[in-house]
Design a protein around this nucleic acid. Structure first.
Length: 313
DNA sequence: CAGTGTTTACAGGACA
DNA sequence: TGTCCTGTAAACACTG
């Protein structure tokens, strides 16, 4: 396991498998699905190690996408031209890494043999893709609606519409990082002195740092809502932005999920959502819900809000 | 033609 | 030690 340097081991290989990296990329996007090129971009933005030998690791990554059932290919629709499909995580693949290691999975995710995590989630890839696309539609509508919701006094407090259960997908960078906090020995320092998330994020995610998305006190603005957590305009991800599939997808529905809208919005990784300070192990990033910052991820409406939002549309 | 997606093969490491 | 997972390479087909 590579040991992070004092401030970074940016040029060393990250302690994540391609599956982890890909899952991170997908999870980091509020739409919970990304085209291959955006997955590449995410990894290269965040991990300088992968800015070299691109052909090698990108081939490996593509191999993983095709080979592993935990990734689902979601075809573009006619109104979203472009090359390649979107890739999403299978809704039931949530606990592959529950052994705490993101280098090696506890077990390989197989569609046929997987545990029925959620009866509402189709197990067949095609059905799952369709399911994800439907969820995406709902999410996009919700995002759109949320962006036009009237401002709450003192600003639109997104935490009030965030997932109440605080569920975090195991693939979320937030969880990956958090897990590493708990790791004894080497990786203990990883998250604090390891990847320079802040340093890398700052230039790479100007919209967050610049628009108040990362500012715990700043209300979410319309401008901010126009941008995904990916640091690029939602419109560009959504290819026109009106109907497109790219909406976040629930990985594991929460008990709070509304029937009919299983597990709707989940979250956005905290590293996208929180200020750099909150990456500290001692930071109260766990205080999600109440004082939770108006993070892009938390910006997703709750299931109930979603329903009404969708209904409005 | 470049990018994307699929498949096969093999080596190496982790784990039971 | 055998099995499983991961990483890598390569060939090939498809598509915009």
């Amino acid at each position: 396991m590579p040991r992070p340097g004092r401030n970074t081991y940016s040029d060393q290989k990250p302690p994540y498998s391609y599956i982890s990296l890909t899952a991170m990329a997908i999870q980091s996007c509020p739409e919970k699905m990304l085209p291959l090129s955006e997955i590449y971009k995410f990894i290269m933005d965040r991990f300088p190690y992968y800015r070299e030998n691109t052909q090698r690791w990108q081939n490996s990554l593509r191999h993983n996408l095709s080979f592993n059932d935990c990734f689902i290919k979601i075809p573009r629709r006619p109104d979203q031209p472009g090359k390649g499909s979107f890739w999403a995580l299978h809704p039931n693949c949530g606990d592959m890494f529950e052994n705490g290691s993101f280098l090696r999975r506890r077990k390989r995710f197989k569609v046929g043999s997987m545990q029925a995590t959620d009866p509402l989630v189709p197990s067949k890839p095609q059905d799952a893709a369709h399911y994800l696309q439907q969820q995406a539609k709902l999410r996009l509508s919700a995002l759109h609606a949320a962006a036009h919701l009237p401002q709450m006094p003192g600003g639109y407090n997104l935490s009030s519409v965030s997932q109440p259960s605080g569920f975090k997908h195991p693939f979320a960078i937030e969880n990956i990082i958090a897990r590493e906090y708990k790791m004894p020995g080497g990786l203990a320092a990883f998250s604090t002195t390891g990847y320079p998330l802040h340093n890398q994020l700052t230039p790479a995610w100007p919209h967050m740092y610049g628009s108040g998305m990362m500012d715990t006190a700043a209300p979410i603005s319309m401008a901010a809502s126009d941008y995904s957590a990916y640091g690029m305009p939602l419109k560009s991800i959504c290819h026109g932005g009106q109907t497109l599939p790219a909406i976040p997808v629930p990985i594991k529905p929460t008990p709070a999920s509304v029937p009919g809208l299983p597990g709707l919005p989940t979250h956005i990784p905290a590293f996208l959502a929180n200020s750099p300070q909150s990456l500290s192990p001692t930071s109260p990033q766990t205080a999600t819900g109440q004082s939770s910052p108006a993070a892009p991820g938390e910006a997703l409406p709750s299931s109930a809000s979603l329903q009404s939002a969708v209904a409005v549309h």
